[in-house]
Design a protein around this nucleic acid. Structure first.
Lengths: 212, 212, 212, 212
DNA sequence: GATGAATGAGTATTCATTCAT
DNA sequence: TATGAATGAATACTCATTCAT
């Protein structure tokens, strides 16, 4: 048992070591230009070893996104389940959670959306695909629930909460993506914070206040 | 003169023939899995001929996005330059223009954002890159101008127009991207119309009205 | 007849135009990197036209060498057939002839030896190959004859004239080749003249004189 | 240590295995017609493996010549450094060394001069190019030194030793090249020995003796 | 004859993956 | 487990050559 567990822990440590290396290499070179050997070198392992922990390059890549999605999910769940706080506070917490996810790993957040291109998804194992689907659905559901609460309490405009959640989600991914392209096209700044801030402003009662 | 012109037209016809074929193949297989031979076959041409019209695979790919950007730009310009219409009508026209661009070519719209990944941009010729940059900047500028007008007339919330334009742009790309992933993950529906509709609702005075 | 002849002359003019262009392009880019289109452009003709005058790229290439060989042959024949001049004068004339051939077209002289690589020779038409063989044999024969005369008159060392001719020929090609490589390796100077001069010095009685 | 060394030796063995195969294939088909796959097959390896040992086709090709140059250099150095032998013996040794180099690998000796065409040289890595340059210079220098000794001792004609070395070098390459073409054109014999023999005869005092 | 657009066979090179050690 | 040498399938791109006009 102890041995079994220790082995499992050691195995997980290695996986993380590889994921961290992969993140660095994918970030720097992009998916296509990053080779398994690059990643192996960065992880100070041999190419063969990577395959003891990940079925293939696609799954290694997908695991990066999975990590972000898991983190997002945990943060959202935490926000949703907080008892005894006002809806306003909950919304504020949601906003913060999304900032944090982006902060946690800006480049992989972009990768997450690259992942969603049909090209990559097609090569994943059904199990991994299911996990990604589940986490995405769950995140979206949680955000919808918070929005529903905001609507019920008259803090948010009375639109279907799933539509609002969709917009936030789209905005999030869109901002992330667009920011990256800005970096390249215009030399860019860090728009993420201010853009999401403005978005929430508009979403919430803030807008009506400012209009009033 | 006549001959010169006819040749030019014939050449343009071929380019379009190739672009149409490329669009189909890229849509079906994604950028990496689509081979130049696939595209050649789809266009009923030989691989070598593709290179008479496009410098390489990246530029062929980028030209798909260029087409969308050009269309978007034309539509936006048209909206911006309309005289004798109210600001409300102008905003409505902007909304319609963005719908149409998406309708014009949903899959290539996705490509446009894939294009903006640094990986792809690095391989383009400076001329093509400049054209893409210019069109992107111009589109964003035009949207900002319309928003400025909306703000000045009290129709839109008083935020910096560039920030609003950024949000719309992000939303647009995010929605598009996300919708695609939804198609894959959930079997998807056509969220585009209702999502953008809601977004504009929220952006404009509509929100304060509905709240009031 | 007049028409026939004029046509023939026109045809020959075109051939020369192409050969001159080919020489320039081959010299600049080397055989492999030079494309038929490059040559066509240089000749201000279309690629297809080249094939009306030369069966293929190899034969076009070979025709450059043929031209040099023909020139060499003419010069050597002229030297050999001069009546009423002393053997010493004949040898001097031979030396000058070889200088001139090199001057006539230094780079193509190199090509001539590249041509002789089995790779290229294999692709030539039998007729062209025969012509090259014949000219080479004839040139070597003529040189041998002059050397024979030199030996008979005690001007040259008493070795088999064919061996001497071989040496001169080898020296000639070797020098040319080596000079070219020197240009690349050391930044090179024009060694050709002085080297051949020295060689003849050594070959002839000059050496014994200088020793004496 | 032992392992490191064994690996290094194994690696060197593979390199030689590839070089030997490449030599066969290049000899048979020439540079352009020989494909990397041909060479891989001949070496009983996969194409990919070739690239673990040689950066590209050009460098593999160049390495053949490098081998000859290294051998030549070693032989020449050995001749130059021999103490306690007369200048005549040294010259005899030089002659033998050059015979041996040719014997060692007649076909690659030809390649060496093909290598020196600017076309090929341009694609080599600076390191390899430096090595080739260095070896060529060194060989020529050593030959010059021996000739200088011969001149000082009155065995050779009093010409600049570098000029004499150049001539020998040119003669050597020219003979080799020409002999090869003779093989093709005339069915040829082995002129190398007798030609070099004659050349040295002429170079040395032999000539004045025979004249006397 | 002249054109030049179209062809399509041909190949160097890469890199994810495997497997003997 | 870990290694890393070897694999070999896969593909963008070139360019000599053709042929309808």
């Amino acid at each position: 048992m102890g041995i079994q567990e220790r082995k499992e822990r050691e195995r997980e440590r290695r996986r993380q070591q590889i994921i961290v290396a992969a993140k660095r290499v994918f970030s720097e070179k992009g998916f296509n230009k990053a080779t398994m050997e690059d990643i192996a070198k960065e992880a100070e392992l041999s190419p063969g070893t990577l395959y003891l922990y990940f079925k293939n390059k696609d799954e290694l890549y997908a695991s990066l996104s999975l990590r972000i999605l898991q983190y997002l999910n945990i943060r959202l769940d935490h926000v949703a389940k907080q008892e005894g706080i006002s809806t306003e506070e909950k919304i504020e917490a949601l906003k913060e959670a999304m900032f944090d996810v982006y902060d946690f790993d800006p480049l992989v957040t972009i990768n997450m959306f690259h992942l969603q291109s049909s090209e990559t998804l097609r090569n994943l194992s059904p199990e991994l695909l299911d996990e990604i689907k589940g986490l995405s659905r769950s995140s979206l559901g949680t955000i919808s629930d918070i929005f529903q609460e905001g609507i019920s309490n008259g803090i948010f405009i009375d639109k279907h909460p799933v539509a609002l959640a969709d917009i936030l989600w789209s905005l999030f991914s869109g901002v992330v993506l667009w920011e990256e392209s800005k970096k390249i096209i215009d030399g860019g700044k860090d728009y993420m914070k201010q853009t999401l801030e403005t978005a929430f402003d508009i979403f919430g009662r803030g807008i009506s206040k400012s209009v009033a």
